[in-house]
């Protein structure tokens, strides 16, 4: 029986990823710790930020890999298809509906849960029909996604104009990515949602493998295709809502992560791909934040750099004709 060398290679890769992640976490927590009473305070702060970065990394990595499997190509991300703009639109509508005092008075986590629930429903309706048929017309799919994204964003902006400037500022705050400032109040509920969604995703890893063969072959092999498509989209909606709520929209980060994951693993099994994607994303975020925040003292640059690099990678994929 062959297949053994592959398994050995994968084990090495995971050992490597785990080691790098551990080192990154250790450096993140322990580098330049102050002495005395400030120590435990700084540690607590760092742990909080670390949890945020881990959550953002894991959700983005897992969501992108799942989404690309569903869409049947390696160029799309949920964000390119306007998933995160949808989340921001929902936030805006919520502010508009409740007014700034109402928005501030309901607990953050219940807003977040409400948004996520609506997003699951809308995401399934909007993208289920678009992606579920296994359309090979990728140019049209991308175009539709970009148009939807622009539409959601302009709708948010329009509602923002109608709101008074104070209220709009509340929304604006939540529509730009910043790894520096994350909403710590959301961490517990975000962690629970992430754990549930990732757990469910892992439990259907085998079905995702079959889904990746395209609609026809998946149906021929007995996969309940429509159901799996909708469950996948629902999970992706949750896994996009989490990072968008924590730090704001990041369009191209997932693209780099998914590209790296497939490039490194060279294995189609989601039982391997999903954990690897989560680990790779977490490593990139923690290491990147270490470099920009502690080394260069420019915490806010990370999202810019990631978006820039990711954008270039997106262009590279498009120009190389890597769209399949």
């Amino acid at each position: 029986m062959q297949g053994r060398p592959v398994d050995k290679r994968l084990r090495l890769i995971f050992a490597g990823l785990g080691l790098v992640l551990m080192v990154a976490i250790a450096v993140w927590m322990l580098q330049g710790l102050p002495e005395g009473r400030a120590r435990s305070f700084v540690l607590g702060l760092r742990a909080e930020r670390l949890a945020g970065l881990l959550l953002v990394g894991v959700t983005t990595g897992v969501a992108t890999v799942m989404f690309q499997t569903l869409a049947g190509n390696r160029v799309l991300t949920p964000q390119i298809m306007g998933f995160d703009s949808l989340y921001i639109l929902l936030q805006t509508i919520l502010v508009a509906g409740l007014g700034i005092t109402g928005f501030a008075s309901i607990p953050t986590w219940s807003k977040f849960l409400l948004d996520t629930a609506v997003m699951i429903a809308l995401g399934c309706i909007l993208f289920g029909s678009l992606l579920g048929r296994g359309s090979r017309d990728i140019a049209r799919t991308i175009l539709t996604g970009v148009i939807l994204g622009v539409m959601f964003r302009s709708l948010s902006a329009f509602i923002g104009r109608v709101l008074d400037p104070n209220e709009f500022a509340v929304v604006q705050q939540s529509s730009f990515a910043s790894f520096g400032h994350l909403d710590a109040a959301l961490l517990p509920v975000a962690a629970i949602l992430t754990a549930a969604a990732v757990g469910l995703a892992l439990s259907m890893a085998g079905q995702l493998d079959v889904l990746g063969l395209g609609r026809d072959r998946a149906v021929a092999l007995g996969l309940r295709h429509r159901r799996v498509v909708f469950v996948t989209l629902g999970l992706v909606a949750v896994l996009v809502a989490v990072p968008t709520a924590l730090i704001g929209p990041v369009t191209f980060f997932g693209l780099i992560v998914a590209g790296l994951t497939h490039g490194i693993l060279r294995n189609p099994r989601h039982a391997m791909l999903l954990p690897a994607a989560g680990m790779i994303a977490a490593i990139m975020l923690i290491a990147g934040q270490l470099v920009f925040e502690r080394l260069l003292g420019q915490a806010s640059f990370l999202s810019v750099v990631i978006e820039f690099a990711g954008g270039l990678f997106f262009l590279y994929l498009l120009l190389k004709g890597r769209i399949r």
């Binding site: 062959q2 190509n73 390696r74 079959v210 990746g212 063969l213 072959r217 092999l221 189609p268």
Partner: peptide, 17 residues
């Protein structure tokens, strides 16, 4: 046509799914 990058054995193995 298949979107994911598969080895021949991996494709054939899906037949057992």
């Amino acid at each position: 046509a298949i979107a994911s990058r598969l080895r021949v054995r991996e494709l054939v193995a899906f037949g057992r799914w």
